[in-house]
Amino acid sequence: MIKTSTPVTNLPAHDNFHPGNATDESLGEADQQFFQLLKKDLNEIATQPANSTIEKLLRYSRSLK
């Protein structure tokens, strides 16, 4: 069983941090690099709904006219 950790403190571990402007850069260099690598795989595991679901939605929308 792999244990995951949860934050004890939420303060980023680097200086010059402005919460209102938080971007991926605010994550710190190591996390940012890892996230960049992860993005490709996150895109590749993306899934999509069935076409029939989308057709139902479009039919519903047309029915409201």
């Binding site: 303060l11 980023p12 938080a22 994550l27 710190g28």
Partner: peptide, 12 residues
Amino acid sequence: INTALGRMRYAL
């Protein structure tokens, strides 16, 4: 925002 950022860092 600090908490959201902290959660993201922990997720990574």
